[in-house]
Structure formats: structure tokens, C-alpha cells
Design a protein around this nucleic acid. Sequence first.
DNA 1: GTATATAGGATCAATCAAGTCCGATTAATC
DNA 2: GATTAATCGGACTTGATTGATCCTATATAC
Lengths: 145, 145
Amino acid sequence: MRLTRAGEYAIRCLLYLSMHRDRGIIGRKEIAEAMDIPAQFLGKVAQQLARAGIIAIRQGAQGGYELVTRPEELTLLSVVEAIDGEIFLNDCIHRPESCDRQCICSVHLVWEKARTQLRETLAGTTLARLAEEEAQGCAKRSPGP
Amino acid sequence: MRLTRAGEYAIRCLLYLSMHRDRGIIGRKEIAEAMDIPAQFLGKVAQQLARAGIIAIRQGAQGGYELVTRPEELTLLSVVEAIDGEIFLNDCIHRPESCDRQCICSVHLVWEKARTQLRETLAGTTLARLAEEEAQGCAKRSPGP
DNA sequence: GTATATAGGATCAATCAAGTCCGATTAATC
DNA sequence: GATTAATCGGACTTGATTGATCCTATATAC
Ligand code: FES
Ligand code: FES
């Protein structure tokens, strides 16, 4: 399951919103430029995020997007799955009838474990923490003199 | 990265070969029928497995496929990556230039962790173990009277 | 009411997934 | 050596998905 472009943009967008939460509604254009996202495409992504209840959209002049979920409670998993749908590494786990082998093959269990692990890792990361780390900048990872 | 159909077939094929290792070369048709794989497609998959050094292919009459790697040393990861290529959950990790954001964004680290975890899980499963579990049948998972 | 912005549907090109077809090649057997 | 069995390997097909872009409608601030 490769994170799709739309998912990547969603994360960037929410990261930006998280880092500027105090500013309330922020225009699509600003976000798009700051985070290097095609503005039109961001529109589509935002619609999905809104449907998932993660952001609120305000139309018209001075419109834009606003975070509706607290960044501390917004996990990477919810973001990714809001955009790309629930994560299934293995098709058989998604629709068991796709592999109508005797009952459940031994491989199944491995994929199930892998999937759970992956989802837990993503669920364990909040946008708040990402925003915080991001705010600290690159210094942390490439310390200067 | 959703496990592709080809990957699924590769696993099934190797599972079959592992369970019948004592028989040496086994015809494509037999494998295809037993494991419910389109025979032609199995041909393609087998070629990739051969290129990866996992099986040997014998052409001509009485030809077929033979396991060349010991099932104890053949991991699910090598199989999957032999078919679908190295696993990258996130495009940016694959080609860092794709997201030329300042340096390395905080999200990056999470995906890296997720990817490592996933690969380790798959690397920790050998075909030998899968074959063994498979041989025990469904009894284990749905015990009868 | 006008300027500003997003909504939402349609469309599009490129890519990929999952097969299928078929002539070439290779090996066993008679 | 000819026949037959079986895979190789490249071309092709079909359908879905990705990653956008365009355009009209609609909502809001002023
Ligand atoms: S039954 Fe689910 S992977 Fe085979
Ligand atoms: S730099 Fe790799 S995910 Fe952003």
C-alpha cells in the first residue's frame, strides 16, 4: 500500500493547519503555495478531509480551511485512511472470498499481523507531534556548529 | 503497497514447492491447478522468481519448476520484493527528490519506521514455517469435534 | 451587487495490474 | 532425428487507478 499523492498532500495540508492553528481559517491558496500542492488538487483532497470531519470548509470571500479536530487527537492513520481508504496490505484480508482457498491459509496470519502493526504505528503518531517536530526545524536532524 | 496479485501467486507457488520439496521438479500445470493460479500468468511470475534465484526452471518435456533456495532461508520479504520490487510505503523515501521540502520533514521518520517494521515482519517469516503450518491444515484454526 | 473563493462534476493523460496470445526455444522420448 | 511436451519471452489487451485540470455553480464578505 503505497501512500498516494493525495494522502501526502493531505498530511502536508493538515501539518500546516496544525502549525497555524491560532490563525483559524486559512485560504487554500496560501496552504497550496506554502506546502507545494497543486491548488485545484488540494480542493479535492480538502473535500475528502471535510467529509471525514477533520477540517471545516468555508466558502466565499475570505474562505478557506480550518482544523476541526484537535491536532493532539488527529492521527496519521485517520488522515491516510480518510483519503486512501482503509489500509489493506493484502487483498484477501479485504475481501476474503478473493482467495477461496480451503479455509485460512497460513500466510493470511502474517499479513494480518503486518497490517495491524502498520496501522498501529500510524495511529501512534499525532499531527500535534509532527507539527511540533516540524517547528523545531532541521537543526535537530542536522545540527550546525 | 498492496500485495499484488502476482505476489500472491508467487507465495502460493513457493508454498506448494516447499510442501513438495522431495519431489524435485514440478510441472507448471500441476502447481497452477493445485494453487488456483492462471497457468500462463504463473509463467510470468516464475520467470521473475527464477531471475531472483529463488527457483530453477527446466524447459522442455517433463519441465517445470524447482526450489533452489532452502525454504528455511526463504523469507516472505524476499518473495514479495522479488516480484513487486522493494517495499516503499512512501514515495518520498523511494526518491527523496520527489518531495523537495526543506530537509527531511517529520513525517518522513514515521514512514521510515513503518516501512522497517513491515519489512522486518515479512523477513521474519520463512516459507518453511508457512509450509509447515499449512500442512497442519485448518484443524488448528477451526478445531473439529 | 460585486469581487472573492470554494464546491463539485466532468474530463483527461499516463500509468499500472492482471491477464492472454503466440511464435521461438529447449529438452525428453521414441 | 522427428515428434512431442513444456516453458520462454515479448507483444498486446482491458480495466482500474492516479494525478491532475477545467468549468460552472454557489456561497460569503464588503
Ligand atoms: S486465506 Fe488470506 S491470505 Fe490466503
Ligand atoms: S521529506 Fe520524506 S516524507 Fe517529507
